[in-house]
């Protein structure tokens, strides 16, 4: 190390106390993360290398990487990795968008209208407990094996959590906020749109995050029938031919893109309701 390289810390000293608590701890967290991922990769590589299990059970990281390159360029079952991923992402987007829209509307109704709550509340809870694979068969019978059953599955999976989150938020609205609105001349629809809805926005945005998460975990189920192109379809196909490296590749791609999207949604969550926690 040369002297100039060591110099910077000295002028930074006045702001050091705060920096020292944030900067290095953050860097340390990042370092730990890199270390754990690296360690896992290393362990994977070592175990595969030792050939404890045959490659068809546990392919080495290098093989998965080679598949990543191959499926990205040449493709797998007729489509490139990018096409598989984009198709799945589009399904997730469309499914959770409708699920969110329907969930917010249903949640507002359930929260605001006691009769609707009594009628639809139990149904929503019931559907929510069903695993998506369980109703896929019904959707396939109803809608065939095209795009519709896949979208419907994601809608049905993502709608209930949003509806429940919205309904809970609606019931948490401050009665005096409603009283204030009413004495300012707000009609019922104005109260719903201008008080209840914005009040519930934080919970709704959390609900959206849940909806996308549910759609994400359900997309593989949705793509078990005629799912190519699609990441789930690709995994399914690879399983049939014991292409374990492709299966693992699919898992990694789904996991990483899911993490990325969740990050985006967390950011959205923070910006959508800046008043949260400081009324």
């Amino acid at each position: 190390m040369s002297a100039p390289a060591e110099a910077p810390p000295a002028p930074a000293a006045p702001t050091a106390p705060r920096r020292r608590r944030e900067g290095p701890s953050r860097r340390r967290a990042l370092g730990l993360r890199v270390l754990s991922v690296g360690g896992l990769l290393l362990l994977w590589w070592a175990v595969a290398r030792a050939q404890v299990w045959p490659p068809v059970v546990l392919p080495p990281p290098g093989a998965v990487w080679a598949q990543a390159v191959a499926t990205s360029t040449e493709g797998y079952s007729g489509h490139t990795l990018g096409e598989h991923l984009l198709t799945s992402l589009r399904r997730i987007l469309v499914g959770s968008a409708w699920g969110t829209l329907g969930g917010v509307l249903l949640g507002l109704l359930i929260g605001l209208v006691p009769a609707v709550r009594a009628m639809l509340g139990p149904l929503v809870t019931f559907v929510r407990t069903l695993p998506p694979l369980a109703y896929l068969s019904l959707l396939v019978i109803w809608f065939g094996i095209g795009e519709e059953p896949k979208i419907w599955l994601l809608v049905v999976a993502s709608l209930p959590p949003v509806a429940v989150a919205t309904a809970d938020a609606v019931r948490g609205v401050d009665p005096d906020h409603l009283n204030a609105a009413r004495s300012l001349g707000a009609r019922p629809w104005q109260q719903a749109l201008w008080v209840v809805l914005p009040h519930s926005l934080p919970e709704i945005s959390t609900g959206v995050r849940i909806a996308v998460g549910v759609a994400y975990t359900s997309v593989v189920a949705a793509e078990t029938v005629n799912g190519v192109p699609g990441i789930g379809g690709m995994i399914r196909e690879a399983q049939r031919f014991n292409h374990t490296d492709v299966v693992i590749l699919g898992l990694i791609v789904i996991g990483l893109s899911g993490l990325l999207i969740d990050r985006l949604l967390v950011t959205l969550d923070r910006t959508v309701a800046p008043w949260r926690g400081r009324t």
Binding site: V195, P198, H199
Partner: peptide, 8 residues
């Protein structure tokens, strides 16, 4: 208690 709408 102030009942201003914090989202506005």
């Amino acid at each position: 208690q102030p009942t201003l709408f914090p989202w506005l």
